[in-house]
Design a protein around this nucleic acid. Sequence first.
DNA 1: GTCTATACGGCGATAGAC
DNA 2: GTCTATCGCCGTATAGAC
Lengths: 187, 187
Amino acid sequence: MPYDSQSKRSRLIEAAAALIYERGFRDVTIADIAERAQVPTGNVYYYFKARDDIGFAVVETRLAEIQSSFREWDALENPKSRLIAFLNALEANSQELAEHGCPIGSLCAEFSKTGGALADKSRTLFIAMIDWFTTQFRAQGSGEGARSQALHLLSSVQGACLLAHSQRDSSLVTGEICQLKRWIEAL
Amino acid sequence: MPYDSQSKRSRLIEAAAALIYERGFRDVTIADIAERAQVPTGNVYYYFKARDDIGFAVVETRLAEIQSSFREWDALENPKSRLIAFLNALEANSQELAEHGCPIGSLCAEFSKTGGALADKSRTLFIAMIDWFTTQFRAQGSGEGARSQALHLLSSVQGACLLAHSQRDSSLVTGEICQLKRWIEAL
DNA sequence: GTCTATACGGCGATAGAC
DNA sequence: GTCTATCGCCGTATAGAC
């Protein structure tokens, strides 16, 4: 594999992730991705043997992204402030969330309908989030209720993103986040 | 317009709604819809001048469905029991919600990305739900907080459906519904 | 009004030159 | 490894027979 193969492959995945976030997987063509990545159209098939493999790679990228954020927040002193850091990150992105929805949530929604290997792969995204949230709630002292609280947190956030996206109103995310912060701080 | 034109049109919309719920709008073809509705493929264009118009009609059908449910629940004695009736209906459908997601939520998620007229149209679905919820919370005595509580209810339900669909685990909806019921009853 | 046949465009995928 | 040219399929939409 040549020196900049990785670079081209990365550029393709990055372009795909952005386009899929904006339009949805089904509405993004190979040509669209190639153009945005500045790679000749037909050449995409040197890096991915099928269209679905691009979706696969995008899920892996998204997973790496959130795990990277989690590791960063793990450095914070206590579990509550880690969860708050997550909510702050969402709040900072509320404009984009209202415009295009949650990058994770929309991927899961679309691939879940698709079914097959992509649905299986996308499932790992929510699992990673639930696991990390559960760890924080447990470390905070929630005991048995930790997982249930983790589910409630993810569920609320995803629902708020969907609402905000549909109504194109970022206040629908920020409002819910504000309540969630109060809930966590009061634990 | 002939006697059974309405019947054929209705059959097409019904078939489209079911298929779109299962696979998503983008993955359902005119031929698929026609076949399920037992109508010749090319003939669909007598009833709908473009593909998007079918999506439009499906949104209108879904809107009529939920408004019909709301009217039914309006007959119940008090606002709390009306909201509980809504949650009971979800609970009864939890299996299907885990398999295909929320029929309203998935439509909104997909059409919101699409943008354009379909996004605008699909927006009315959540608005109708928020309005009815708000009315119930206000009648219950929530005052200023009614709208915020309505948003929280819809948001939680939609998030739970998305989670359950992605993980194909109906307990993720029923669990959240159980908590929401307790919240409403404690108001 | 109803249905068939087909035009047309676009997309995924491949073959093969360099 | 990289890129171009192109094939073949499928889906939307239309023209026009009945």
